[in-house]
Design a protein around this nucleic acid. Structure first.
Ligand code: MG
Length: 431
DNA sequence: CTATGTAAACAAC
DNA sequence: GTTGTTTACATAG
């Protein structure tokens, strides 16, 4: 069969934590806010969390009320990601069962380092269906696109998104056909890819990012009927001129990452065109305003040269002082991650030893992230730095005026500023 | 014919 | 093994 072995769920899941401030959730008009449709936002509302001092901590966490999303660690192991998605876990009711409350409701004041060795055993979980809000995707935070005055003479797809983000759900009963249709349903790959990129910051995503998007926003990745979906995606990316590959340098000497980006034309015309134009002698679309990728030669060829761009600097100028942090590193150009490496959602094992709680996390692009830590050789700990007030990803605790550490876990070396306005300034905790 | 999905060969990493 | 490019084949409309 020699089937393309590249299919199937591999590394997955990018994600984001809804960043709200204190108390209850309310519509966030912040353009950076990720309006993902999760059925019950209240479950993700920041909750007061008293972070106890840890003898292990090198920092000096204050006892100020801290807000955590109640979910934390991400394992950035090299492989075998799998997210946990236990629907059997009762919704977390803010205020009722605080993470720091014991079975009896008592507040735990003892911090116990989590045993990460345990994570490995937890990790093995089949990817369940009906995950969260598979249908939706953020179709906002994009510069006002010019009216889709599709002037192309060729067949171009009508602007896919008619304004609204497909609603989530399909679990259980409700699911009107319209939903099925408007969702990522049976739309062709080219359009889906378009949507994926369109929804991404900078209209670009890595191949893996696109895969992830498909996994969470379409059925292609789950449905056994769609076998070579990844192959198809690649095929479309390559063949459709509406998608271009761009190399992005993450900094001097650092690795360059490849992204697939929507062509300006594709964005302007409000959509991409048919990927069809194989046919050896198809003089179709080879003409001027065609968005077709001109067919050069014939075989499996050297990857086309890709354009190079640099990450944009969205950083702020000032940096807060970070106590007890060494190797403070600021990305040369204010590394604004386009997206993060694949991450897995692991159940949050509370320090108190309570049973782990697996929150269904929204999974998709990292729009609202303004900064993040890099992957550490050997381990984990990526921290997302959100532009909004509030903690970043993980059970942060203050280590300074505007800085928060992701946790006190020995292995979580990463820290990031939080209330810092879009400060992609990172620090490493002394090991 | 056109558009789309798949498979697959094949090059370059 | 992954990422890209491109041809070939099948099929629906
Ligand atoms: Mg292309």
């Amino acid at each position: 069969m020699a089937t393309d072995q590249r299919e199937g769920p591999g590394a997955l899941s990018g994600q984001t934590v809804p960043s709200s401030s204190v108390g209850s959730y309310q519509a966030n008009l912040n353009p950076h806010h990720n309006p993902c449709n999760i059925d019950d936002w209240s479950r993700w509302v920041s909750q007061p969390l008293l972070v106890p001092s840890s003898p292990h901590s090198r920092f000096y966490p204050q006892m100020d009320a801290e807000y955590s999303m109640g979910l934390s660690h991400q394992n950035l192991g090299a492989s075998n990601y799998t997210w946990i998605n236990h629907h059997d876990i009762p919704p977390h009711v803010p205020g009722i069962d605080s993470p720091n409350m014991g079975p009896m409701g008592e507040i735990k004041d003892e911090y116990v380092d989590e045993d990460k060795s345990e994570w490995k055993t937890i990790r093995q979980s089949p990817i369940k269906e009906e995950l969260y809000y598979s249908g939706m995707l953020p179709m906002q935070n994009l510069p006002p696109s010019p009216p889709s005055t599709s002037t192309s003479t060729d067949s171009s797809y009508p602007s896919p998104e008619s304004g609204h983000a497909p609603s989530p759900e399909r679990t259980g009963s409700g699911m009107n056909k319209e939903d099925t249709k408007e969702r990522a349903g049976n739309l062709p790959y080219s359009i889906l890819i378009y949507r994926a990129l369109k929804s991404a910051d900078g209209n670009k995503l890595s191949l893996q990012g696109i895969y992830r998007w498909f996994e969470m926003n379409t059925d292609k990745a789950k449905d056994p009927n769609h076998k070579g979906w990844q192959n198809s995606i690649r095929h479309n990316l390559s063949m459709n001129a509406g998608f271009e590959a761009v190399k992005e340098e993450m900094g001097p000497g650092q690795k360059t990452v490849n992204f697939w980006r929507l062509t300006p034309a594709a964005i302007q015309d409000g959509g991409i065109q048919s990927t069809t134009r194989y046919r050896k002698g198809s003089a179709k679309g080879t003409g001027r305003n065609s968005q077709r990728e001109p067919t050069g030669s014939d075989g499996g060829h050297p990857p086309k040269k890709v354009k190079t761009s640099h990450a944009v600097n969205h950083s702020s100028s000032h940096i807060s002082h970070i106590p007890h942090i060494s190797h403070i590193q600021q990305y040369p150009q204010g590394y604004l991650p386009t997206e993060l490496p694949p991450m897995a959602f692991l159940p949050h094992t509370f320090p108190s030893g309570l049973p782990p709680v697996n929150h269904p996390m929204p999974r998709f692009g990292l729009g609202p992230v303004s900064g993040c830590t890099a992957q550490f050789p050997g381990n984990n700990g990526v921290v997302l730095d959100y532009p909004e007030m509030g903690p970043d990803y993980g059970p942060t605790y203050p280590i300074g005026p505007t800085w928060y550490a992701s946790s006190t876990l020995p292995n979580d070396r990463a820290i990031a500023g939080s209330n810092v306005p879009a400060g992609p300034v990172l620090g490493y905790k002394d090991q």
